[in-house]
């Protein structure tokens, strides 16, 4: 299994965190808040598509709502492979951070 890219990992984590309410707008809001950078909606859908292709998330069509001009949402859910992938990414991070020296900003 290939490692996730940074944007894929962030979006995958956001989908996991949002659980049943993971769709374009909420994912964008969450990742923008977490990274401190205003993500565009396209920048959210591009990694979502890659994740979908890899079988890590699946699309679930929602009902049309009036505040969206009668257009339906598309919700995203993690697949079992997506969960495994997230755990693997976490293990990689933990292993690397675990052995690394603590960073002090004043030393730089």
């Amino acid at each position: 299994m290939n490692l996730l890219s940074r944007s894929e990992e962030i979006v995958l984590l956001a989908v996991w965190q949002l659980r049943d309410n993971a769709y374009g707008v909420t994912i964008r809001t969450l990742v923008s808040k977490a990274t401190g950078y205003p993500w565009s909606i396209g920048a959210v859908y591009a990694p979502l598509y890659r994740l979908e292709r890899k079988g890590l998330v699946r699309m679930i069509p929602g009902e049309p709502t009036p505040e969206r001009g009668g257009r339906s949402k598309v919700y995203y859910r993690l697949t079992p492979d997506g969960k495994k992938s997230l755990l693997r990414a976490k293990r990689v991070h933990d292993a690397l951070w675990g052995d690394a020296q603590p960073i002090r900003v004043d030393e730089i």
Partner: peptide, 16 residues
């Protein structure tokens, strides 16, 4: 076409 409706709706929602 797979995400057309969803993205248009998202844009509408954010704009509103």
């Amino acid at each position: 076409r797979e995400i057309r409706d969803a993205v248009l709706g998202d844009m509408d929602e954010m704009a509103a």
